[in-house]
Protein backbone atom coordinates (compact mmCIF):
# COMPACT_ATOMS: atom_id res chain seq x y z
CA UNK A 1 0.00 0.00 0.00
CA UNK A 2 2.81 2.38 0.93
CA UNK A 3 4.49 1.41 -2.34
CA UNK A 4 1.37 2.28 -4.27
CA UNK A 5 1.04 5.69 -2.62
CA UNK A 6 4.71 6.35 -3.28
CA UNK A 7 4.22 5.42 -6.93
CA UNK A 8 1.18 7.69 -7.28
CA UNK A 9 2.99 10.64 -5.70
CA UNK A 10 6.00 10.06 -7.93
CA UNK A 11 3.76 9.88 -11.00
CA UNK A 12 1.88 13.04 -10.06
CA UNK A 13 5.00 15.05 -9.30
CA UNK A 14 6.84 13.94 -12.44
CA UNK A 15 3.75 14.58 -14.54
CA UNK A 16 3.46 18.15 -13.23
CA UNK A 17 7.16 18.96 -13.49
CA UNK A 18 7.34 17.31 -16.93
CA UNK A 19 4.38 19.36 -18.12
CA UNK A 20 5.86 22.57 -16.78
CA UNK A 21 9.26 22.03 -18.38
CA UNK A 22 7.66 21.02 -21.65
CA UNK A 23 5.57 24.18 -21.84
CA UNK A 24 8.51 26.38 -20.97
CA UNK A 25 10.71 24.67 -23.52
CA UNK A 26 8.15 24.89 -26.32
CA UNK A 27 7.70 28.60 -25.64
CA UNK A 28 11.46 29.11 -25.86
CA UNK A 29 11.69 26.98 -29.02
CA UNK A 30 8.97 28.97 -30.77
CA UNK A 31 10.51 32.29 -29.84
CA UNK A 32 13.97 31.27 -31.02
CA UNK A 33 12.68 29.77 -34.25
CA UNK A 34 11.15 33.14 -35.00
CA UNK A 35 14.40 34.88 -34.15
CA UNK A 36 16.62 32.56 -36.19
CA UNK A 37 14.37 32.45 -39.24
CA UNK A 38 16.88 34.45 -41.33
CA UNK A 39 19.47 31.64 -40.99
CA UNK A 40 18.15 29.36 -43.72
CA UNK A 41 18.48 25.60 -43.34
CA UNK A 42 18.13 23.29 -46.28
CA UNK A 43 18.68 19.63 -46.90
CA UNK A 44 19.94 20.39 -50.42
CA UNK A 45 23.51 19.24 -51.01
CA UNK A 46 24.64 22.26 -52.94
CA UNK A 47 24.22 25.97 -52.48
CA UNK A 48 21.08 27.12 -54.22
CA UNK A 49 21.49 30.19 -56.40
CA UNK A 50 24.66 31.52 -57.99
CA UNK A 51 26.20 33.80 -55.42
CA UNK A 52 29.82 32.75 -54.78
CA UNK A 53 30.63 31.04 -51.48
CA UNK A 54 33.36 32.71 -49.44
CA UNK A 55 33.43 30.38 -46.43
CA UNK A 56 32.08 26.91 -45.58
CA UNK A 57 32.47 24.73 -42.50
CA UNK A 58 30.71 22.10 -40.43
CA UNK A 59 28.12 23.32 -37.95
CA UNK A 60 26.52 21.05 -35.34
CA UNK A 61 23.86 21.18 -32.68
CA UNK A 62 23.42 18.39 -30.21
CA UNK A 63 20.81 17.63 -27.53
CA UNK A 64 20.71 14.76 -25.05
CA UNK A 65 17.30 13.99 -23.62
CA UNK A 66 15.94 11.51 -21.16
CA UNK A 67 12.54 10.55 -19.84
CA UNK A 68 10.74 11.53 -16.71
CA UNK A 69 9.12 8.89 -14.52
CA UNK A 70 5.62 9.59 -15.77
CA UNK A 71 6.57 9.16 -19.42
CA UNK A 72 8.55 6.03 -18.66
CA UNK A 73 5.55 4.61 -16.80
CA UNK A 74 3.19 5.32 -19.71
CA UNK A 75 5.68 3.81 -22.16
CA UNK A 76 5.90 0.73 -19.94
CA UNK A 77 2.14 0.29 -20.09
CA UNK A 78 2.21 0.98 -23.83
CA UNK A 79 4.69 -1.87 -24.23
CA UNK A 80 1.94 -4.24 -23.09
CA UNK A 81 -0.75 -2.96 -25.43
CA UNK A 82 1.15 -1.58 -28.39
CA UNK A 83 0.52 1.52 -30.44
CA UNK A 84 1.97 5.02 -30.61
CA UNK A 85 4.01 5.97 -27.57
CA UNK A 86 2.41 9.40 -27.43
CA UNK A 87 4.24 10.29 -24.25
CA UNK A 88 7.57 10.25 -26.10
CA UNK A 89 6.55 12.25 -29.16
CA UNK A 90 6.65 15.77 -27.72
CA UNK A 91 9.95 14.99 -26.04
CA UNK A 92 11.62 13.95 -29.30
CA UNK A 93 10.03 16.82 -31.19
CA UNK A 94 11.50 19.22 -28.64
CA UNK A 95 14.91 17.57 -28.90
CA UNK A 96 15.02 17.71 -32.71
CA UNK A 97 13.96 21.33 -32.86
CA UNK A 98 16.34 22.28 -30.08
CA UNK A 99 19.23 20.56 -31.88
CA UNK A 100 18.46 22.45 -35.11
CA UNK A 101 18.21 25.70 -33.16
CA UNK A 102 21.60 25.16 -31.57
CA UNK A 103 23.08 24.43 -34.98
CA UNK A 104 21.60 27.62 -36.38
CA UNK A 105 22.81 29.61 -33.37
CA UNK A 106 26.30 28.34 -34.05
CA UNK A 107 25.95 29.25 -37.72
CA UNK A 108 24.76 32.74 -36.91
CA UNK A 109 27.55 33.28 -34.36
CA UNK A 110 30.08 32.50 -37.11
CA UNK A 111 28.37 34.83 -39.51
CA UNK A 112 27.06 32.18 -41.94
CA UNK A 113 24.08 32.96 -44.10
CA UNK A 114 22.75 29.44 -44.40
CA UNK A 115 23.25 25.80 -43.54
CA UNK A 116 23.08 23.32 -46.40
CA UNK A 117 23.01 19.52 -46.45
CA UNK A 118 21.45 19.49 -42.99
CA UNK A 119 21.01 16.01 -41.46
CA UNK A 120 19.62 14.67 -38.21
CA UNK A 121 21.01 11.70 -36.36
CA UNK A 122 19.85 9.90 -33.25
CA UNK A 123 21.93 7.64 -31.08
CA UNK A 124 20.97 5.78 -27.96
CA UNK A 125 22.96 6.22 -24.80
CA UNK A 126 23.18 3.00 -22.84
CA UNK A 127 22.36 3.25 -19.19
CA UNK A 128 24.90 2.29 -16.57
CA UNK A 129 22.07 0.68 -14.62
CA UNK A 130 20.45 -2.66 -15.52
CA UNK A 131 23.65 -4.00 -17.15
CA UNK A 132 23.65 -1.41 -19.88
CA UNK A 133 20.45 -2.86 -21.29
CA UNK A 134 18.35 0.14 -20.40
CA UNK A 135 18.47 3.48 -22.17
CA UNK A 136 19.78 6.48 -20.29
CA UNK A 137 18.59 8.76 -23.04
CA UNK A 138 19.11 9.66 -26.67
CA UNK A 139 21.32 12.18 -28.36
CA UNK A 140 19.87 14.08 -31.27
CA UNK A 141 22.51 15.60 -33.49
CA UNK A 142 21.77 18.12 -36.20
CA UNK A 143 24.64 18.89 -38.54
CA UNK A 144 25.24 20.53 -41.87
CA UNK A 145 27.56 22.80 -43.80
CA UNK A 146 27.50 26.44 -42.83
CA UNK A 147 27.87 28.71 -45.82
CA UNK A 148 28.91 32.33 -46.04
CA UNK A 149 28.02 33.96 -49.30
CA UNK A 150 29.83 36.84 -50.97
CA UNK A 151 28.07 40.12 -50.29
Amino acid sequence: MADLIGLLILLLVTYLTGRWFERKHFASIRAREQQLAPVVITTLRSVPGDRPVVQAALVTGSVVVSLDYFKRFLAGLRALIGGRIRAYEPLLDRARREAMLRMREQARARGYDMVINMRLETSRLASAASNGKGTAGVEILAFGTGIKLAP
Partner: peptide, 12 residues
Protein backbone atom coordinates in the same frame (compact mmCIF):
# COMPACT_ATOMS: atom_id res chain seq x y z
CA UNK B 1 2.38 17.58 -37.02
CA UNK B 2 4.81 15.67 -34.84
CA UNK B 3 2.89 16.17 -31.62
CA UNK B 4 0.08 13.97 -30.35
CA UNK B 5 -3.31 15.65 -30.42
CA UNK B 6 -4.52 13.99 -27.22
CA UNK B 7 -3.78 15.18 -23.71
CA UNK B 8 -1.18 13.05 -21.89
CA UNK B 9 -3.64 12.33 -19.09
CA UNK B 10 -6.26 10.97 -21.48
CA UNK B 11 -3.53 8.82 -22.96
CA UNK B 12 -2.67 7.65 -19.43
Amino acid sequence: VNLPSSHPLSDA
